[in-house]
Design a protein around this nucleic acid. Structure first.
Length: 499
DNA sequence: TGAAATGTTGGGGCG
DNA sequence: ACGCCCCAACATTTC
């Protein structure tokens, strides 16, 4: 567990009044699948009333982005871990399926619960659910917990939401520091009667035939304990050189906390304070640590954008991009998804995604640039694929990041910034170790040719046992020509908007 | 959180 | 010795 310097808060253990003993509080677990530093849960426990924890799998609410395959795999294991942790406190976890507002209202009727406690969420449908419950007369108490700074809290001088990251980041640093984490509740008063729940197995969240989750099991331990392990590994290791190494997919240069943060198995407050403590204890890590906090702030910024522009996942943030004409090219899209574009750094990334449920951030930018710019395919196609295959699939981060690469987002990369995947590969995977790991058929190519096998002499290819078009595809797109095409399309879009 | 084209500079080869 | 050219290296501009 991450050590925090603050004094442990004693939770009240006074006996509930008799009248209240039979009327539990419903605790709605959402994207806060943790017991430690869960302010909403702590507040529920602090009332002294019985607390009934519930999780609702909501594939039905209108406008909801139904959780993708990788997320469902993660959810299964995270809920298992959470249920185990709760069981140690003698507390059940009730599972229900359906549109969250109606499911929760039914549970309130069944149990006679007096109130519903939860941590805020910021997806449009999640906010709608909170409103619907409140409108239905449910006593709903919402707590901050998934963000360091609530979306309403940060405003520009003119009172508008931020659209540019740097001033947003400055505002974060000037704001009152995030609250220190809370310890986990020492006990939870168990309700006298527990309503029936569904079995996790019945939800069929795990893949069966085929079982594609082997690589996921190898790299991840969903749940609060796994999150703490990752955090400790990061603080003991990569954080020191994070500023430079975070761009190196061939190294362990990043925290890999993103799925844990998405599911709320660790709070950003825990991360923030653990990193601050690390800086105190080991000042030489300050550069890397500060750089990590800045990345945490990008997560905040994405949520800030989604909260204030709920259409962010569906519509370009910059209206002029609605005039952009995208290619209808299912073959190229398929090759991109399969990691068979013939461009090694791109294929390595797409295969890493498929095999492990995760992709290094630098490589995410490279594969996204290829899809959007070189292939001229709508960024929403990439967004949808990432949504299905990433264990850290997060509506705010995913939407904001795709729009960032597309150039249509807030404070986005200019459209004419088109990555050259060969140069990116040589710069950030200099000895090709990352490519070799995920594209083993190129493993014997020498370093200087591994990022552009189509430019290698025939003798080098045959020496490495590579026949292009057979063992490994030729590039599906000419990088130079497609770059020119992308720039032309961008100019055409701008002119279309003007006329 | 780019890349490519274009411009500038300065050292060295060479007639 | 001198001027000229070449071109790598770096800087600036453009997309």
């Amino acid at each position: 567990m991450i050590r925090t310097s603050h004094r442990c808060v004693e939770f009240t253990t006074r006996r509930p009044k008799d009248a209240m003993a039979t009327t539990p509080i419903l605790f709605w677990f959402r994207q806060d699948l943790r017991l430690t530093d869960n302010r909403a849960l702590a507040a529920a426990c602090d009332t002294g009333q019985a607390v009934l924890p519930v999780y609702v799998l909501d594939d039905e609410s209108p406008g909801a982005w139904r959780m993708g395959g990788a997320s469902r795999w993660w959810l299964h294991h995270s809920l298992t871990a959470l249920a185990d942790d709760l069981a140690q406190l003698g507390c059940p976890l009730v599972l229900r399926r359906g549109a969250a507002p109606s499911v929760l209202q039914a549970l309130i009727t069944e149990t006679g619960a007096t109130a519903l406690y939860c941590t805020r969420a910021y997806e449009p449908w999640a906010r709608n659910a909170e409103t619907a419950l409140s409108d239905a007369g449910v006593e709903i108490k919402r707590f901050a917990g998934n963000l360091l700074f609530e979306p309403e809290a940060l405003r520009t001088q003119s009172g508008t939401p931020y659209r540019v990251f740097t001033p947003f980041w400055k505002a974060c640093q000037a704001a009152p520091p995030p609250k220190p984490p809370l310890p986990r509740p020492q006990s939870i008063v168990r309700p006298e009667s527990i309503p029936a729940g569904e079995s996790l197995a019945a939800w069929r969240l795990l893949p069966t035939a085929p079982d594609w989750a082997g690589g996921l099991r190898k790299g991840w331990q969903p749940g609060e304990a796994g999150a703490q392990t990752k955090a400790i590994e990061f603080l003991d290791g990569a954080v020191a050189d994070y500023a430079s190494m975070r761009d190196r997919p061939d190294r362990i240069g990043t925290s890999r906390l993103s799925p844990h943060l998405h599911f709320g198995e660790i709070s950003p407050h825990q991360c923030w304070h653990a990193v601050r403590a690390k800086i105190e204890a080991s000042p030489k890590t300050a550069g890397g640590a500060q750089s990590f906090l800045r990345e945490l702030a990008w997560r905040e910024f994405s949520n800030h954008l989604l909260f204030n522009w709920p259409a962010l996942p569906e519509e370009p943030f910059q209206p002029k991009f609605t005039a952009m004409r995208w290619a209808n090219d299912p073959d190229s899209l398929h090759a991109w998804k399969q990691g068979r574009t013939g461009i090694p750094i791109v294929d390595a990334g797409m295969r890493e995604l498929w095999q492990t449920g995760w992709m290094h951030n630098r490589v995410r930018m490279i594969v996204a640039s290829l899809l959007i710019k070189n292939l001229q395919i709508d960024w929403r196609e990439g967004e949808a694929w990432f949504w299905d295959t990433l264990v850290d699939a997060d509506l705010a981060n995913n939407a904001a990041s795709w729009q960032w690469v597309a150039g249509s987002g807030a404070d986005a990369a200019p459209y004419f910034r088109i990555f050259n995947p060969v140069l990116q590969g040589r710069k950030f995977d200099p000895d090709g170790a990352y490519v070799r790991r995920f594209v083993p058929e190129l493993g014997r190519l020498p370093d200087r040719h591994i990022h552009a096998p189509w430019e290698a002499p025939e003798a080098v290819l045959s020496e490495a046992g590579v026949m292009l078009g057979y063992d490994y595809p030729r590039p599906i797109v000419d990088l130079r020509a497609s770059r020119q095409r992308a720039l032309a399309a961008y100019n055409a879009m701008r002119e279309a908007k003007e006329t």
